[in-house]
């Protein structure tokens, strides 16, 4: 049967990671974080929580490795095609009014989401005057994202998603295939800046007309969700847009009154003033 981590051990692990490495996971949803720590232990043959704590204190490389396991890095291009269709039809035409557009993808993982956005912007003729900021807490994800390389196997799904999102071009124009991978065209990537930013501990660094933070909130407890929603509020220009994952909701956060709903189903909100 499945081994478990006691509440005390769990807090110990969180504290070691925070004190020694500066990453604060205290506001993460426990069920999934515990599961991922256990998964990391079994993959790396660490059999007891005692061993894990001991090694975390003495071996910083182990921690680097652990981060890769405990953050959920799964992502897709044009995931939830209807969301991208709504961006195309309702949000981008509004952004077009700004001479310079700034968009932030918080929790961008390996880049698939921001590449999709770049394609939308290109098709709307807005890419050259847009700056895309793509951040994540996990440095390995960012390294991968910066290469612009995606496994070829995924392209079939992504092409399907792209068409569903209302894309009319030949999707294969946006990449070049090399053996088992594809390389997203340089011209799509040149406006993107990948950098490390931890939503829990780092602060406002710029002002945006649109922030996409999708499928990151699900890993945060309500208190942390509020904290991050405040950070986004402070990072949005007046009437700026915020997009969350389609199963995420602002309804359960206290701060929701400061945002108005633009599209309830696609979870697109807007700063009220």
């Amino acid at each position: 049967m499945k081994e478990d981590i006691s509440a005390v051990d769990f807090l110990d692990i969180i504290n070691i990671v925070k004190l020694q490495y500066g990453y604060d996971f205290a506001g993460y949803v426990q069920a999934s974080l515990k599961r991922r720590i256990l998964r990391f232990m079994s993959r790396t043959n660490i059999s007891t929580v005692f061993d894990l704590k001991h090694r975390l204190i003495n071996d910083s490389e182990l921690f680097t490795h652990m981060v890769q396991y405990i953050t959920v890095n799964v992502t897709e291009m044009f995931r939830d095609p209807r969301f991208y269709r709504t961006l195309r039809e309702e949000v981008l035409p509004k952004l077009a009014a700004y001479p310079n557009i700034k968009i932030w993808h918080a929790g961008c993982s390996t880049g698939e989401e921001v590449f999709s956005m770049a394609i939308l912007l290109q098709e709307a003729g807005l890419l050259s005057r847009t700056k895309l900021y793509a951040s994540d807490l996990n440095p390995m994800n960012l390294e991968k994202a910066a290469t612009g390389i995606i496994p070829l196997d995924n392209m079939k799904d992504y092409t399907y998603n792209y068409i569903q999102s209302g894309g009319l071009a030949d999707f294969s124009n946006y990449y070049t295939a090399r053996y088992d991978n594809v390389l997203i065209k340089k011209e799509l990537r040149k406006q993107i800046n990948f950098f490390q930013h931890n939503l829990v501990t780092d602060t406002v660094f710029n002002e945006f007309q649109l922030i996409c933070c999708r499928n990151v909130f699900i890993y945060f407890n309500r208190e942390l969700q509020n904290h991050v929603l405040q950070l986004f509020y402070d990072s949005l220009s007046s009437r700026g847009y915020l997009a969350m994952g389609i199963r995420e909701s602002m309804r359960f956060a206290n701060i929701h009154k400061q945002y108005e709903t633009v599209h309830a189903q696609e979870k697109i909100y807007r700063r009220k003033s």
Partner: peptide, 15 residues
């Protein structure tokens, strides 16, 4: 789909 200790739903987009 998971349920948290405080009896709320938690959605997880992991592997």
């Amino acid at each position: 789909l998971m349920i948290e200790a405080d009896k709320t739903f938690m959605l997880d987009y992991s592997e």
